[in-house]
Amino acid sequence: MSNRSAVFGGAGFIGTNLVYQLIEDGQQVFNFDNLSGLGNLLNIAELMQQSRHSFARCDISNPEEIRQALLMAAADTIFFCITPKNPEEESSLDNFRTFFETVKEWRNGMTDTKLHKIVVVVSEHYKLLGSYGHMYTDLLKLLDGYVADGLPISSLLVPPAFGPFQQPDSPISMIIYRAIEGETIPVVNPEEKVSDLVYVKDVVDAIVLVEKNGKIGGHYHLSGPSCGLTNLEAADVICESLNEELPPPVGRYQALIEEVATSPVTSDIAKDEANLVVLGLQGKTSLEDALRKTVNWYLNNPRWYNQSRTRFFYLWQNPETVLKIA
């Protein structure tokens, strides 16, 4: 494992959780994010005074900012945790091309660089499932081209994740926000089995595993744990955890549940976890345990939650924009 890591997208959801883990593992982490979208400085506020963490703004569409970040970090490993927001657009990979072209030029011009691995993390988002297939195929071709040019790239595709530091932009976080605020809780297709969801801590473990053992040019897939829960039962686990830890003034949180029928949302990418298992992938956190841990994290971090609730008010107040409810 490397001693100096650069994380691009390190103030976002997955990037933040990765940064915390890398620092816990004793690494020097250089964290870069342009703080647009869901990137949030409050995510890494506790790290700002730590000697092993450095933060700087960086826009991956700007070659000069990328070069400055690479010179600043002089990293052994680069973690790229930025996924295209609009995978259906032809231009969705333009920023990826800019980034890797700049990295290639920088590496070719630095004879003493110690860079040994670039891990590209591609995270599917619930709202855009069914839109990633074409983009993902094109991305793999793009990455393979840069591997042929000498860049040490491995990639990891992960399903929609949930856990600490997540804004209200997915079904799990949406339920938690709206329950805490006493709003109705939309549960889409309540009797369907929970789709491919994974706890973010398991995502981070898989990222570190690919960095440590993954082959250059390897493309790895992570799947969620096998689960027999329906969407309604998963919502019940969340509500029951809140009942225990933050009892409502009257009744139970389950009374807020509103069942909603809509078209199923599924991934259009066939995932095969076999080559990740070969690397040494361990068992994943069960959905029930992960949901309870996530609820407890939100309740134990009220400053972060209150800031997020205010900043992303529109999202949790308008669940149809997140859950694709007609």
Results as ranks from 00 to 15, higher is better:
residue 173 S to P: 08
residue 227 C to K: 10
residue 107 R to W: 08
residue 141 K to M: 04
residue 26 G to K: 06
residue 207 I to Q: 05
residue 179 A to W: 11
residue 21 Q to H: 08
residue 160 P to N: 05
residue 47 L to W: 00
residue 309 R to Y: 05
residue 92 S to F: 02
residue 129 L to W: 07
residue 26 G to A: 04
residue 269 I to Q: 00
residue 314 Y to I: 12
residue 165 F to K: 11
residue 29 V to L: 02
residue 255 A to F: 12
residue 239 C to S: 14
residue 226 S to Y: 14
residue 125 H to P: 06
residue 31 N to Y: 00
residue 123 S to L: 11
residue 21 Q to R: 14
residue 10 G to F: 03
residue 185 I to D: 05
residue 47 L to P: 00
residue 139 L to M: 09
residue 87 P to V: 02
residue 13 F to V: 05
residue 293 K to T: 07
residue 185 I to V: 13
residue 258 E to C: 12
residue 260 V to P: 09
residue 45 A to Y: 07
residue 143 L to H: 00
residue 9 G to I: 01
residue 240 E to H: 14
residue 177 Y to H: 07
residue 101 E to N: 13
residue 237 V to F: 14
residue 156 L to M: 05
residue 148 A to F: 02
residue 284 K to F: 03
residue 207 I to P: 06
residue 83 T to R: 02
residue 166 Q to R: 06
residue 236 D to M: 13
residue 79 F to G: 05
residue 15 G to I: 02
residue 272 D to R: 02
residue 222 L to I: 06
residue 325 I to F: 09
residue 16 T to A: 02
residue 23 I to A: 07
residue 48 M to P: 00
residue 248 P to A: 05
residue 229 L to G: 10
residue 9 G to P: 00
residue 193 K to D: 11
residue 243 N to A: 11
residue 163 G to N: 07
residue 72 M to H: 13
residue 152 P to T: 00
residue 167 Q to E: 11
residue 104 K to T: 05
residue 218 G to H: 12
residue 118 I to H: 07
residue 183 E to P: 06
residue 303 R to S: 14
residue 189 N to T: 12
residue 168 P to K: 08
residue 207 I to H: 06
residue 60 I to Y: 02
residue 142 L to Y: 03
residue 202 D to Y: 11
residue 214 G to N: 08
residue 128 L to T: 13
residue 82 I to P: 04
residue 92 S to A: 15
residue 307 Q to W: 11
residue 42 L to S: 11
residue 118 I to R: 09
residue 34 N to A: 01
residue 134 H to T: 14
residue 199 Y to T: 12
residue 66 I to F: 01
residue 132 Y to H: 07
residue 18 L to P: 00
residue 175 I to E: 12
residue 233 E to R: 10
residue 46 E to P: 08
residue 299 L to F: 05
residue 37 G to L: 03
residue 157 L to V: 01
residue 210 V to Y: 04
residue 7 V to T: 01
residue 205 D to S: 15
residue 49 Q to E: 12
residue 197 L to N: 10
residue 289 D to Q: 15
residue 288 E to D: 10
residue 262 T to V: 14
residue 309 R to K: 14
